[in-house]
């Protein structure tokens, strides 16, 4: 099997390498990919949409349908992870630690449980003493990562950035919290219900803006029709519409990232992980 695989790979690779002879040279301005549609985009986007970041303009305006279903794909991935893995049965073994002395308690009976408070705290099975350097550095770092994520979302129209990137940065800041503290700490602050609501809200914002354009008399996702809603700045209405869409994408991506992470590391039990 391994040998057969190697033969197939060498054959395919050889054919593809032979095929590169017909590809245009690297960086050739006259290559077919850079001559037809892209010239139109580069020369007309600013006058048509008032958005200098061409990637965002193509993503959220010219290819708005594509991005909408892309967000739906991300949402479906989060939903699939939840449906595949989520396990609502309570775990059998529970572990608690007495904070002043550090004594560890192991409860094997699933019915006896303790309410964690000032004296006892819930802990993971493979508990390692948390490192104070890692905890402190992450605690200082996380707010700045989140501010940066919001900046990336909000400036997606004018500088490199956008909803997908900002959402991933925000989601990874929450994942960093789960890694540096523990999963319970994250889920106490950002509950599962909150995450699911946010994932759905993000897709809803995107579709809602499209439907709003239809209600205002235009076509689906035609942001220009939203101008009467923003009387103070009708010139930038397409940029503002894209910003709204990007915010929806960012919210959906952020919550789906955390949902996938939480479900995979804890095998759907949401009690302990990494």
């Amino acid at each position: 099997m391994k040998f057969l695989g190697l033969v197939i790979v060498c054959l395919t690779g050889g054919l593809l390498l032979y095929g590169t002879m017909d590809l245009p040279n690297w960086g050739d301005p006259a290559s077919p990919a850079s001559t037809h549609l892209s010239d139109y985009y580069i020369e007309h986007i600013v006058e048509e949409t008032q958005v200098p970041n061409l990637v965002t303009a193509v993503l959220a305006d010219y290819r708005g349908y594509d991005t909408m279903f892309e967000t739906a794909v991300v949402f479906c991935a989060g939903l699939a992870c939840f449906l595949l893995l989520r396990d609502f049965r309570p775990g059998k073994d529970r572990y608690y630690r007495h904070i002043p002395t550090g004594v560890m308690l192991h409860f094997k009976n699933p019915d006896t449980r303790m309410i964690p408070g000032n004296e006892f705290e819930h802990m993971d099975k493979d508990w390692v003493p948390s490192d104070i350097i890692i905890k402190t550095v992450c605690r200082i770092l996380i707010p700045f990562i989140q501010i940066y994520a919001l900046y990336v979302v909000a400036h997606g129209d004018f500088s490199p950035g956008g909803g997908f990137q900002g959402g991933v940065i925000f989601g990874s800041s929450l994942i960093l919290m789960a890694i540096s503290y523990n999963l319970k700490t994250l889920l106490k602050r950002v509950t599962e219900k909150f995450l699911s609501m946010f994932a759905a809200t993000g897709v809803l914002i995107y579709v809602g803006l499209g439907v709003l354009a239809m209600i205002m008399g235009g076509q689906f996702l035609d942001y220009g029709m939203l101008a009467p809603l923003v009387p103070w700045d009708p010139g930038h209405i397409r940029a503002l519409g894209m910003l709204g869409v990007e915010i929806g994408v960012g919210i959906a991506v952020m919550s789906v990232m955390v949902i996938i992470y939480v479900n995979i590391v804890s095998e759907g039990r949401h009690d302990e992980g990494l």
């Binding site: 990919a33 892309e70 997908f164 990232m257």
Partner: peptide
């Protein structure tokens, strides 16, 4: 050319989603 960047931005997101599932 901005078009390949747009297409790959969406492809990266799909790859994350498929990898998660």
């Amino acid at each position: 050319n901005p078009l390949p960047h747009v297409l790959m931005l969406t492809a990266i997101v799909v790859s994350v989603a498929t990898f998660g599932v």
